[in-house]
């Protein structure tokens, strides 16, 4: 496909955890291709993502995935304006595969290299559905992150709050493991919770009155104590009700703090982003609450909630247009910060 001169075509690459993904996005909004090779079946037998196993799989697949992304988009490397890649945060060994491949492509073609923050990518997943309207607040929830981000324009991120310990998704996974649910645990808890009743009393960490930070380690410990005590006393635990109680405790805080952040910044637009935004109850509750408050809510479709390269290409488009390029010494950064 020969593109018009006023078009921007970005190749995105994402390997921050256990998905090998490459995508081509046109003008920051239109997905021409989004190839995702998930390793979920590889890691299931270990009960979680094993970093070394993930890195080995990425290295095998990366070239094929990039080639398929270009083929699916009916374009070629020569037509692409820049190569965008997840610089971090994530598993460093996994990130390095994407970064090494992106640098090699930039070197081989002379095209600009654009380093993208993984969370920026998740926020821009929404942009692929409906262009972002500024100012906005985004609730980013995944296995590695729980943050409230404020944006007034493209490419500018201000953090309103973040988790002080476990990410929400991490709490889901740990509690799921405690309940002996198969990996990945988040969707399993979601599935059980819908059938249960919130019978168990669990804490909600609101922190200081005006704080938009989160904390989930106390909740996780409370669930563990509850289960251990019941086991000692030989009492039966109703896992369906426990899943429901736990999920409600997490969602109460996520929903309430998101609304507080919107009110504090006086914005009209709220976005949900990250892997946990696939949680059905979170989607329903946030939609309901936003409607009551007269807030316009954006939620990405399920296929864009999990890690994918289209969101990286979308976020990378605006960085490319702003001239935020990297040179060939670009490195992966497991703790890369979104806010400079």
């Amino acid at each position: 496909m020969k593109k018009n001169s006023n078009e921007t075509l970005i190749l995105g690459i994402e390997t921050s955890c256990d998905e090998t993904s490459a995508a081509v996005v046109q003008n920051g909004t239109k997905i021409l291709s989004n190839v995702i090779s998930s390793q979920i079946d590889v890691h299931r037998k270990f009960g979680g993502v094993v970093p070394e196993v993930a890195s080995r799989r990425h290295v095998e697949r990366i070239t094929l995935i990039i080639q398929k992304a270009l083929e699916d988009a009916e374009t070629c490397l020569e037509e692409v304006d820049a190569i965008a890649v997840t610089k971090g945060p994530g598993l460093v060994g996994a990130l390095l595969i994407g970064v090494s491949a992106a640098k090699a492509l930039a070197f081989a073609t002379g095209k600009p290299l654009v380093p993208v923050h993984h969370i920026a990518g998740h926020i821009y997943a929404n942009h692929l559905v409906k262009p972002l309207t500024f100012p906005l607040v985004a609730l980013v929830v995944s296995g590695g992150h729980t943050e409230l981000i404020y944006m007034t324009r493209h490419n500018q991120f201000e953090r309103l709050g973040k988790t002080r310990d476990d990410a929400a998704g991490e709490a889901f996974d740990k509690v799921a493991r405690l309940m002996k649910l198969p990996y990945p645990g988040g969707p399993q808890i979601d599935r059980l919770a819908i059938q249960g009743e919130p019978r168990y009393q669990l804490p909600r960490a609101w922190l200081e009155t005006d704080s938009l930070d989160f904390s989930f380690s106390g909740l996780k410990s409370a669930v563990m104590n509850l289960v251990n005590k019941a086991r000692q006393r030989g009492e039966e635990i109703n896992y369906t009700d426990l899943a429901c109680s736990f999920q409600m405790a997490v969602l109460d805080v996520l929903v309430e703090k998101s609304i507080r952040a919107v009110k504090k910044t006086k914005v009209k637009h709220l976005l949900l982003a990250g892997g946990v935004s696939a949680n059905s109850s979170l989607r329903i509750r946030l939609t309901e609450r936003a409607r009551q408050e007269g807030i316009e809510l954006g939620i990405p479709p399920l296929e864009l909630c999990t890690d994918n390269a289209a969101m990286i290409a979308a976020a990378g488009t605006y960085q490319f247009l702003d001239g935020k390029h990297a040179d060939l010494s670009l490195n992966a950064d497991a703790n890369f910060s979104l806010v400079e």
């Binding site: 290295v59 070239t63 990039i66 060994g93 090699a104 073609t109």
Partner: peptide
Amino acid sequence: SYTGIRIGVTTAKTIAWAR
């Protein structure tokens, strides 16, 4: 070194494919 090997292999095979 696992990481070292992967950096070389990924770089080389990506350049080979692109060129």
